[in-house]
Simulated scan of single mutants.
Amino acid sequence: MRILFFGRGLISTQYAWALEQAGHTVEFYVRKGRKETFGSRIDLEMWDARKGKKLIKESWSIKLHEEILPHYDLIIVSVNTEQLPEAAQLLSAAAGNTPILIFNNLWQDLKSSIAPLPMNNVVFGFPGAGGGIENNRLRGGFLKMVFLEKPRVGTKHINQLIQACFESAHFKISWVKDMQNWLWNHFAMNAAMETEVLKRGSFPAIMNHKDSFSNVGLNIREMIPVLKARGAKPDAITLLLTKLPPALLGVLFNRVVFAKGSLPRLFMEYNNSKAGFAVLEVVREAKKTGIPLPRLTKALENSEYAKQK
């Protein structure tokens, strides 16, 4: 299968490597000027957890394009949330009928988030990976599981294509019945985490403060009315995070979810991305409905997003 990854970011690079290892042809679309900046290789130091736990260290040769050609079997899009509207506009003009996987975190409703792309040519999914890229060096990794929405009317053939693609690379698919609700809940969880990152200064920094994860549950509790106001139903994980006492939640995150040596902890320690946009999006939504979010709003005050809320 010939696959185009939109952008040469963390998620795109890791899954492109895995799919190439499975025999697929993978290439990247990058903005004009980025081809020369990125170069033709990237250094990988990432954990592959599809079969056990294996460290991959290599200088990987990649193929970059600054235009989208009409000869791909699949396009996979994984960009920063704020970049998705621009990506959708570009693909609507350049992708033709090529099936598209949106492999992204989303807060907007699915249809408007990808306008003007047609819904029957798009499937939504979510990766199980993390880490960061700095100075052309990728540090991170991916788990065995990827999340994919169950077929909608008109998308069954695309779902089957994507399923075959990922399963050929030994990934396991977790099928999501209501992807819209799943993504809303996941985005809220991300905003709760980013609220603590804004306080501490970086993703790795929150690993060193036991109170950070206790506060995640309090941040989620604050956002429940916002989720409900937009028609979302808190899922099992969201409800668990709101029901557990903050102190117990802190212990659970520190000693189990992000235990020392675990891959999720390594992914966080390698994460050098900029935090705050998810918090801003939720605060903006809350303002529309008059719902107070004091914890999230305070976290934004000293960030670059302070004037945008």
Results as ranks from 00 to 15, higher is better:
64 L>Q: 08
64 L>K: 00
65 H>G: 00
65 H>S: 12
66 E>H: 03
67 E>L: 06
70 P>I: 00
71 H>T: 10
71 H>G: 08
72 Y>L: 08
76 I>T: 13
77 V>M: 09
82 E>P: 02
83 Q>C: 07
83 Q>Y: 09
83 Q>R: 09
84 L>G: 01
84 L>W: 02
85 P>T: 07
88 A>Q: 03
88 A>L: 01
88 A>R: 03
90 L>H: 09
90 L>W: 06
90 L>I: 12
90 L>Y: 05
90 L>C: 06
90 L>N: 06
91 L>G: 12
92 S>Q: 13
93 A>S: 15
94 A>D: 12
99 P>D: 05
100 I>V: 14
102 I>M: 15
103 F>V: 07
103 F>N: 14
104 N>M: 11
109 D>W: 08
109 D>R: 14
110 L>W: 07
110 L>M: 15
112 S>R: 14
112 S>T: 15
113 S>Q: 12
119 M>W: 00
122 V>G: 08
129 A>N: 08
129 A>I: 04
129 A>W: 08
131 G>I: 00
132 G>R: 08
132 G>Y: 10
133 I>D: 10
133 I>E: 12
135 N>S: 14
135 N>W: 04
136 N>R: 15
136 N>C: 05
136 N>Q: 14
140 G>N: 07
140 G>I: 04
140 G>H: 01
142 F>R: 00
145 M>P: 00
145 M>T: 10
146 V>L: 11
147 F>K: 11
147 F>S: 08
150 K>D: 01
150 K>V: 06
151 P>A: 09
152 R>N: 13
